[in-house]
Nucleic acid binder design. Sequence first.
DNA 1: TTAGGGTTAG
Length: 579
Amino acid sequence: MQIPNFSALLTISLHIKQLKQIHGSILANGLDHLEPILIRQIIVSSGGFHQTHVTQYVKTILNHTQHRDVSPLGYAIRFLCQHGQFQDAVIFYVQLQRSGVFPNTYALSSIPKAYGKINCKNGGISVHCQVHKYGFASVVYVQTALLDFYSKMGDIKTAHKVFDEMSERNVVSWNAIISGYVKFGEFEMAQSVFDRMPERDIVSWNAILLGYAKAGKMDQAYVLFKEMPERGASSWNVMIRGYIDCGNIELARGFFDAMPKRNSISYITMISAYSKCGDVESAEKIFYEEEKKDQLLYNAMVACYAQNGRPKEALHLFDEMLQPILNIQPDKMTLASAISACSQLGDSNMGGRIESYMGEFGIRMDNYLSTALIDMHAKCGNIDKAIELFHRLEKKDIVAYSAIILGCGINGRGQDAIKLFEEMIDSNISPNSATITGILSAYNHAGLVEEGFDCFELMQKYGIIPGVDHYAIMVDLLGKAGRLEEAYELIKKMPMQPHSGVWGALLLACSVHNNVELGEIAAAKCFKLEPNSTGYCSLLSKIYVSSGKWDEATRLREAIEERSFNKVPGCSWIKPAEA
DNA sequence: TTAGGGTTAG
């Protein structure tokens, strides 16, 4: 093939496969100088392809090409930013600078957003310096991007300074500063900028509407909503979100039903609201009623199943979205939920498959995914792998600590769990209810009773109210140590009704330590709370046998047989004991 | 430039 043919080919819209072939031929023919044009063409033609494939391929070429033509590279950086590949955009931007190439407006107007997304304030500040250095200080797009960067980083002062110094402003610049004030709760400032705006568009109105919603002033939000010159799906979505945050899910649903044209955000807002209050059925109804299901909708429903202890359904839906007929690409959100489902099932095979998707689709590991994987490996018994992942975490937050502490606890690594808990407290991270469950389980495994009690005091310090499960672990811990009376006293002091787990822990301890009296009390409670479970009967029977109380053992066995014959739930023969 | 979704326990 001749050189002119390549150039001509690269001016028309082609399939990614054809572009890949052309790329191969270009390199084989030593025509590397055409690579920049190829990059641009891939991006331009990318509309119909999977974005992940395109971004992967663009990244591959960027990594390998020797050419440093600013136009396609700036274009590529903007493309990566538009497709959420912020880390990579920053890497290429830095490479571009290192090779001595001046960035262009494409790169400079998109890179501040990338720095903001990866939470790198210094990066954005250095871009700000470069903007002045390279003479882009009067370009409205570049300045707006910088002002938006500062406002998103919470530095409203600098954002306002950039805004004040702008020689030219457009409606986007005004909206960016308003959104910044709204985001950080400075509603009055937002309102005052809004009042001064020379012209407003729907985004300006939505930003102010959001301000009311965030302040919980839904009555005023409604007045504004009615007054708005135009309303879009976003305006309705803000109202829905506002009512959900106020706990008025019915009114939110009313708006959802009434809106003229819903978008994916409307659906996922409602689904996640139902998910959070455990109403999986309503979420399912919305999901299945919508015919055009996209990635966002699937993600919301997979998450809903995973969050509500229905891991099989979560994975079933995950599989469905990968079917060639639908071929919806999973992303970080999907994988995080799917991994959570795997850990609930203890299924590390499926988990491994999901890990391999990450490579296949070029999904970068982040804190959410790492934490989900830590939990999964720990629950599947691979605690070393979990610990390794934990130590590789960039930022160890409360969820990651909770997951690893619990993981160590359930894998018999009590001492490791205790060390990590201390490390967490030293790094000024306050434990939450889940962390306490984890550390208490670790003390329980290690048989550290006093530390368990100390933990109850610690909870008070951090304002955590002990839940029924914390008591259950404590009862188990005391029971195992043979301190049965203390365990019983603790149950009596509980401010809430003990569940069968609490009484079951006491009963188990009684069976280990052959305590008939407390065993009968605990068993009676268990029978009442879970009449259909036979496990408690066997435990009590074991206590009788071990204590030589053959008559009671026989009576109990007869009662069980009679019960299963008559299908009458409960064991009525035992004297009900008061706790 | 706005709106939304993911990770820990129960």
